[in-house]
Nucleic acid binder design. Structure first.
Lengths: 215, 215, 215, 215
DNA sequence: AATGAATGAGTTTTCATTCAT
DNA sequence: TATGAATGAAAACTCATTCAT
């Protein structure tokens, strides 16, 4: 693409962000070097600084981009699913980003709906020293919980989910389960054990929450 | 204590390890500085190197110590509890290390029973570059799961937990839920929401797993 | 003005020079960035390089321009004044560029007659590494001294200034006093103290130098 | 000198400061590199950072040290001189640090009483961006003026200096003259011209200020 | 003629680690 | 055994300058 083209700058920023996510997510914040990102893009370090004021800003934008993109996708995704599907193999595969992990290099940023393995890690590394980032993440986390709750709430109205169920707990529970299982993957637990746990526990949650459960 | 006494060396190592836990757990691996640990112990950096060959070795030993301690404590703790208690306030407070968080400076981390998530941070930072460490962590993680499963298995035998329940899933589910909620805390979610979710979700798990549930 | 007009190039160079004076004078050589100059002119950095081979050349030309302008103005200015006026408020205000300091952004520096001290800063920064520049500055400095001396010499001929006075010393003394008081301003001394000193000392110089001093 | 000796640290700091002053004073703040100072001391850059948190702090301490030392010396020096001596060759030589300039490498920081040639330059480079430094310099400048004024005031009491003379103006005038002539040296004016001017102008000042002037 | 993009060559700063005493 | 001092190797960041269009 020629360089003097409208939108080139945005294009370039996106290219950097997409490449950066790989390193931040794989190695965390501190172990990711600007030189590494620059090299992998075939540009100089200085070039990165034309688009991002600092490493921290780059990371923040990576997060921002990720966070912004995900919410819309999440809604669309949920709309097409019945809550029962949460405990299926298909849902698990998408949620845990099983396939895209292997070809991450050539895929766009958001293959799955939830943070790529280990992305939380990089966030955590910064979150203590960067309060504005913490606020952003809190906001995002709550927003996702709200979307999930709203989704469950809809099914409560339809009489699928029991009246007395706290859909906010349900949302947070399912999300935390996923986060925790991500850690388990990181710790070296085999994926089939992760999957079995996911299916068993979500089944328990749904069975207790549904008015009629034939599973 | 005089310095040329047998066991002094071990004593000293332990003192270093106990102090290091705090920093690695709070700040992760890279943000924790050798100088910081040395200062907080009132010794020189060089002194640390008399007991540990490198930062990485110190961290490995910290993990080892932590992991070893936890298992003993876990067994003792579980022996005194009925599974039903998992969903109580008291259990939550101990598990999430609520009190010690406030006075963290003076308490040893392992007051809590499971590795709090921000410890995972440090582990994760190293795990990619240090495969032997990953093996150790995997071993430990599995060991804790096994202990928990065994504990549930006991109650299966007693007829408290249903025959068809997979206690290994139960163990992993509960542990992941805890890990995931630790992330939520880190992301800035209020503790009362964490607690509500913990109680609601564990209740669902227990209710489906118990033969007779009067809750 | 269309760009393919003879003289356009000179015009453009002058615009750059005039703008640059402000930055070099306020911030010195090293703190002045090419980007800063370009931005303030609303052009690209690359544009500057069409007119000046390097930052150093730009600065040299800035000095050249400044120095050339000053001499013409100085002659014109002195012609209209009696030496006695040196110790007046009006003269002080012009010399120390009092008014233009307040609206410096919109005025050209050379409203003042002598190089304000903070311009010396930039000169000094370069002078060691650039001998040809030093020669130019020496030449200019001597030229200004000569102009001042000639002016006093004229009044010696008229019998206003004593025969035995060394007008060259007088010129250098007055000029150095001004330079030194510029330093004092920079060091944070209040302007009224500067003014009082200027008036007191110049009065002393003039009183001793004049044949008849009624002040 | 052995390294584990009380006072070694202070000694080392002083060695660094003394060496640094040479570079800051010769090249100004920006052109002076930490590497250059380190190399000339035969130590690593990192060593400097054991004694000074940053380049700016090093410079500040250089200034501080200089400023602190000079006031005591100034008083002692003045006590031994009669004001009339100000216009002598000897005084000039000391004031303008003529000899020590040539052998500066091996001499202690404060050879002369006033800032080494060009030292103001380095100060100026920082003063705009560092308000606390500006305050310190203002305080110092005023203090020196006060010391000089007090000195003249003493001679006013003794009937040597006229009652109506403003000794504060006198002090600032003489000091500014020196500063301004330093600039002239920098600009390449020959030292004999500087000296002639100094002697002529101070003579004028003294002649007008003294009750009886036989010169 | 003009510019957005890119960069090489620094420069300050950091930190785990070593060493002389 | 203990430490104050020293450092090498790296990392983030800067900026004058060049280049393709």
């Amino acid at each position: 693409m020629p360089k003097v083209v409208p939108g080139y700058r945005e294009e370039a920023k996106n290219r950097i962000i997409k490449k950066s996510v790989k390193y931040f997510s794989k190695n965390g914040y501190h172990k990711t070097k600007m030189a590494e990102i620059a090299d992998s893009l075939g540009v100089s370090k200085a070039a990165l600084y034309q688009y991002f004021e600092s490493k921290e800003e780059l990371f923040t934008q990576v997060m921002q981009y990720y966070v912004d993109s995900i919410q819309g996708e999440l809604i669309a995704f949920l709309k097409s699913k019945h809550p029962k599907e949460i405990m299926t193999d298909d849902f698990f595969d998408i949620l845990f980003d099983i396939k895209s992990n292997e070809t991450r290099d050539n895929t766009v940023l958001i293959d799955g709906l939830f943070p790529p393995l280990d992305f939380n890690l990089a966030i955590s590394e910064l979150i203590t020293s960067n309060p504005s980032m913490k606020n952003k993440m809190t906001k995002h986390y709550k927003e996702v919980i709200r979307l999930l709750s709203d989704y469950f709430e809809e099914y409560k109205k339809n009489g699928v989910i029991k009246k007395e169920v706290d859909t906010s707990s349900m949302a947070m529970g399912i999300m935390s389960l996923q986060d925790g299982l991500m850690t388990a993957i990181l710790m070296g637990i085999e994926i089939h054990e992760i999957k079995r746990t996911w299916k068993d526990i979500t089944k328990m949650i749904l069975r207790t929450s549904f008015v009629e459960s034939d599973f």
